[in-house]
């Protein structure tokens, strides 16, 4: 049975089409990134999936049920973008409250430990920093041990260290065979933390595959080195190469398979390769291209 199915789903607010005929299927147990620029329809898709919004057309199912039924069965947990806490309640009280609303929740201590909240369990929500509040919201999302976890730009308010810990916690949770769908506009996050990346732009599916496939489709990586006065002939025939740029003795090879290109460069040519650099630096640009085109 499929985990999450969007079947020709559209959603418009007045004249604005936020989600445009979106169809996709997510297998249970996978971690999927929903990647797209702001306004692409990520939050709308997540709210549709939670039954907080109703599609204008099409149907959505979660484990074969309508979103509202999946929510009622305690199958869904989510970290939404604007999720304030109750200022007068402590971290522990807040987590325990939400936990108590699910039929088969995780143990309170386990949740607090997973979200790194044990040390501040007795603190009231009004006295938490932004990053701490964000951790509490993660704890609330997983408290009920939902089979489907939805995270809408979960690391938005976090510093670098909090992000690392957050993703580690997310992977722990996902490892139990659960389905995780997270929205982000950071390509690196999608790349590092998902099994599959779904790129959406203007409410439509722009690309769908593993991070590597997306990168390759989007123009892939570049291999650059200084060529000096050596001849450039033959570089465009190296494996994986899609384009060659030579400027002032510097060569930039665009490739869909950097490993093969490098092997070809060293084994198949006699060039003296210096200052070699391998980069995905133009991924952002490629991503922008991907989302602009669609």
């Amino acid at each position: 049975m499929n985990g999450i199915v969007f079947d020709h789903v559209s959603k418009h607010y007045g004249d604005v089409l936020a989600v445009d005929d979106l169809s996709l299927t997510i297998e249970p147990g996978t971690t999927v990134a929903l990647l797209g620029p702001n306004g692409a329809g990520k939050s709308t898709s997540i709210n549709l999936l939670l039954g907080l919004l109703k599609p204008s057309r099409g149907t959505i199912t979660v484990h074969g049920r309508a979103p509202a039924q999946a929510v009622a069965a305690g199958e869904m947990g989510a970290m939404l973008q604007d999720g304030a806490l109750i200022p007068e309640l402590t971290v522990k009280e807040t987590v325990d409250l939400v936990r108590g609303l699910y039929p088969r929740p995780l143990a309170l201590d386990d949740i607090l430990a997973m979200a790194d909240l044990t040390a501040i369990a007795g603190r009231r929500a009004s006295r938490l920093s932004g990053g701490q509040a964000q951790r509490v919201r993660f704890a609330l999302a997983v408290a009920g041990a939902p089979r489907v976890l939805l995270l809408d730009e979960p690391t938005a308010a976090m510093d670098v260290e909090s992000r690392l810990r957050f993703w580690a916690a997310m992977h722990d949770y996902a490892a139990g065979g659960r389905t995780v769908l997270f929205a982000t506009h950071y390509l690196e996050e999608a790349d590092e933390h998902s099994d599959r990346v779904i790129v959406i732009a203007r409410g439509r599916l722009a690309a769908d595959g593993t991070a590597d496939q997306i990168k390759a489709d989007a123009g892939g990586q570049t291999v650059s080195f200084s060529l000096g006065a050596q001849p450039a002939a033959g570089l465009d025939r190296l494996p994986g190469v899609t384009a060659v740029e030579i400027t002032d003795g510097a060569a930039v090879l665009h490739t869909t398979d950097a490993d093969a290109t490098l092997a070809g460069l060293y084994r198949g040519t006699t060039l003296d390769v210096r200052d070699l650099r391998l980069s995905s630096a133009d991924l952002e640009a490629a991503f922008l291209r991907l989302t602009r085109e669609s």
């Binding site: 939670l50 039954g51 907080l52 929510v71 009622a72 069965a73 305690g74 869904m76 947990g77 989510a78 939404l80 973008q81 604007d82 999720g83 304030a84 806490l85 109750i86 939400v98 609303l101 699910y102 039929p103 919201r137 609330l140 009920g144």
Partner: peptide, 15 residues
């Protein structure tokens, strides 16, 4: 609660 999103956090629980 409606304004800050807490109510939505509760709405996505089985309650």
């Amino acid at each position: 609660e409606r304004q800050t999103g807490w109510l939505r956090q509760i709405q996505i629980t089985p309650l």
